[in-house]
């Protein structure tokens, strides 16, 4: 009888934990849904500009090239892969492995930001600024910087949050409840998804 009660208690505890995790994930998804709207407005503004001013976009592509941004894209994709492997490691109880992959996520986030900084410097040398009105690049700056800088800010926040996840992970905070890592992972992957769209729309099309 006592065994049965203990089993029922454990079952109810597991169900409670699962419900709690689902609620936390739902909260993160709702937050990401609001981000979808904000990013879509910025991406939509660029798409409308791209379809109405193809010559200006062609001029920018000629000057800028895609080597640097392609490398940066690979780095962000790799960081997403490292993120799921970090989650997998902590779910399997391998804290040391988790720390390694999570450090990779943070490191690649920093490298991505450095790449973006180099790209912005190149654009500044071409006089492509927020309010540039030159006939070759006029109007591009605002449509380009708004989505890419907003995305860069998300990467920066992700790096800072990643450092916190690393610190808490080091303390053993996620050993029995990795939902915090999963929630951070959702954020990081979302940032990756946004970049996948930005890379294609802004740099390739």
């Amino acid at each position: 009888m006592a065994e049965l009660t203990a089993h029922a208690g454990a079952h109810s505890d597991n169900a409670h934990k699962k419900l709690d995790a689902n609620n936390k994930k739902l909260a993160m998804w709702l937050y990401l849904a609001s981000e979808v709207v904000i990013f879509s407005v910025l991406i939509g503004a660029y798409a409308v500009f791209r379809f109405n001013e193809p010559e200006i976009v062609k001029n920018v592509h000629k000057e800028l090239g895609i080597a640097l941004v392609t490398v940066n894209t690979f780095i962000l994709l790799m960081s997403s892969w490292a993120m799921v492997l970090a989650l997998r490691a902590i779910e399997m109880g391998k804290r040391r492995e988790f720390m390694l992959w999570m450090s990779g996520v943070v490191g690649m986030g920093v490298v991505f930001l450095l790449g973006q900084y180099i790209e912005y410097r190149e654009l500044a040398h071409l006089a492509i600024t927020l309010d540039s009105i030159s006939p070759d690049f006029g109007g591009f700056g605002m449509r380009f910087y708004a989505p890419t800088a907003f995305h860069g800010a998300h990467v920066l926040i992700g790096v800072l949050l990643g450092l916190q996840v690393l610190w808490l992970g080091h303390k053993g905070f996620y050993d029995n409840n990795p939902i915090g890592v999963e929630a951070f992972g959702l954020y990081w992957h979302f940032v990756d998804v946004v970049w996948i769209i930005l890379f294609t729309l802004i740099y390739l099309i």
Binding site: N22, L30, A33, S40, H189, D192
Partner: peptide, 30 residues
């Protein structure tokens, strides 16, 4: 990424609705 890395394949199906609803509205607007 969304299906495998963000686990929409195995997670609660309601999360898909949460993601698709704003996307649907935005696609119409764009």
């Amino acid at each position: 990424v969304v299906w495998f890395y963000m686990h929409l394949r195995t997670d609660n199906k309601f999360f898909r609705v949460v993601l698709m609803f704003p996307l649907f509205l935005v696609i119409i607007a764009v």
